[in-house]
Design a binder for these strands. Sequence first.
DNA 1: GCAAAAGTGTTGGTTGTACACCCATGA
DNA 2: TCATGGGTGTACAACCAACACTTTTGC
Lengths: 231, 231
Amino acid sequence: MKKGRQNAINSSFTLDCVIFGFDTKELKVLLINRGEEPYYNTLAIPGDFVQFEEEMDFAATRVLNELTGLENIYMEQLAAFADKDRHPWGRILTVAYYALINIKDYKLTASSFATDVNWVPVSEIKKLAFDHNQIVNKGLDRLRRRIRNRPVGFELLPKKFTLRQLQKLYEAILNEELDKRNFRRKFLKIDLLKALDEWEENVSHKPAQYYRFDKKKYNKMVQDGYKIELF
Amino acid sequence: MKKGRQNAINSSFTLDCVIFGFDTKELKVLLINRGEEPYYNTLAIPGDFVQFEEEMDFAATRVLNELTGLENIYMEQLAAFADKDRHPWGRILTVAYYALINIKDYKLTASSFATDVNWVPVSEIKKLAFDHNQIVNKGLDRLRRRIRNRPVGFELLPKKFTLRQLQKLYEAILNEELDKRNFRRKFLKIDLLKALDEWEENVSHKPAQYYRFDKKKYNKMVQDGYKIELF
DNA sequence: GCAAAAGTGTTGGTTGTACACCCATGA
DNA sequence: TCATGGGTGTACAACCAACACTTTTGC
């Protein structure tokens, strides 16, 4: 992995990734403190040069894996950013991705390109390196749209979750309060949740039932051409 | 314009554009017959290297203008395509755009990079150069999604149009038949159309009233944060 | 017994869908 | 007078939004 980094500079475009996480209340973005020039010691989203022999999706996986140790992460390309003056070294195009991870799975690893890694609530993001604010905003837009018509929210939650966790997630992303009864009815009706025979433990209130996302059923729905309208 | 092309080859990424048009019945894509290597004399979507001193959006405008003579075209970035083997000369990343134009405005100009230009119905597109089939499909997906929640359809029609033209457009893009009465009711209710005091002439049936899209009202709606659900 | 969140139904309004006929025009 | 598409209304079903109370648990 380290070895790769040395020729990487020869490659002509980079890849940057907006990584979203959710911690029971807030939507957060994974920011690094850059360990390299330019913008040394500045907050930024993680990224790297795409290597010559490397497909783009693989580069995205690599960057995420270096940083979080995770594999099989939900990931999607956002867009290319190529403003002439976006990079002080000249015109370096970057392809932006966004990724959704379950914050609990995440294990901090300051990597080759970062001296520090932190989850920052989206509402508290200050000025970032390069055009990264613009990229984060694009990621947010996309997530807000996706959450309305694809069940991507589950990527941000543990495998088992309660309906309350799910609702809080939707509320955080959509930035509005939802009615508990209507939320439950709606979500259970689309029939993508499977109720487990498990309940919360050691909570000082009535324990909630756990559910999991039924990916198989979802895939079948997609194949059958259902138009899913979540919110 | 010619002059620019000579350094363009030094530039490190290209831009390709899926141009959609509509001719009263069918959705079509503008394809060129390539006048350059690689893929000389092969059908492709138009594109070019982005020049050093040129912003990407400007390059898109340039390509479109060379080909069609049109300015102020609706245009949006689709994604970057960068598979290692997508270009026989090595790894050349391309940023794909899609554009919507009113086919009537279009004036054919075989340009510096094309020996021939043609509108091809989307249902009749054969194997194209590079990964251009993949790009066209991405453009189609995007258009189908956009048409459902933003009034982009108007870009494909003349300034004045009848409700029937509009309905045919939606039917062509969504690939399904719609009920006339319901279509009209729905569209008129969202209040983005302005009825003109003009009617069709020289048609051998009851002449239809002309409408135009009220862009100002739309912009206001967007600003006020309306969520628009067209279909 | 108190605090905290789980879980549950009904009603009224809105929206979507399905469906058929008369009208104005040019040929 | 015929062919063509313009233009219109209604009824039923589905969906959505608003709203409050009882239950279970840990402390």
